[in-house]
């Protein structure tokens, strides 16, 4: 499917914001797909890591609507494999932060069933709070 995208200064602003938060230069990505190929959660994702990289390159904010950025488990497989030395997991973190910093949480702690909370190890909850709450 061909989709025409008009790039405005707004798109640039979004790209720059992601670059700034992640400390990476997303435009360096040449879309080889290594990150997607190695991602352990890619089968569950609605877009692949290389697709979110492309959407960010184009400055398209719709990337924030995909569940994929939340399914990233920060396992750093993409990080160690990227031939362009881009830390893709940091880009996912930047995208999550853009949402979380507007005080929009991805998980509602009080909605987790109490018996589930009681059996989770601390480490699971602490890390989920770091990644999914602002």
């Amino acid at each position: 499917m061909i989709k025409k995208v008009e790039i405005t200064s707004e798109n640039d602003k979004f790209l720059n914001k992601v670059n700034e938060l992640s400390g990476e230069v997303v435009t360096l990505c040449d879309q080889c797909g290594t990150c997607s190929g190695g991602c352990p959660l890619v089968t569950e994702m609605d877009i692949t890591p290389s697709q979110w990289m492309r959407l960010v390159q184009l400055g398209l904010k719709e990337v924030l609507d995909f569940k994929a950025i939340w399914l990233c488990a920060s396992c750093f497989t993409c990080t160690v494999r990227c031939p362009r030395k881009i830390d893709v997991s940091k880009v996912a973190e930047a995208l999550r932060q853009i949402i979380l910093r507007k005080a929009i949480d991805y998980i509602d702690l009080k909605a987790i069933p109490k018996d589930e909370l009681a059996c989770l190890p601390q480490i699971a909850l602490v890390s989920a709070c770091r990644k999914f709450t602002g």
Partner: peptide
């Protein structure tokens, strides 16, 4: 060296179970 799903276990325990 393949990820077990890590903290996804809080919200997506079935995905973690598959991994």
């Amino acid at each position: 060296r393949v990820c077990c799903g890590s903290y996804q276990t809080v919200k997506e325990k079935n995905i973690v179970a598959e991994l």
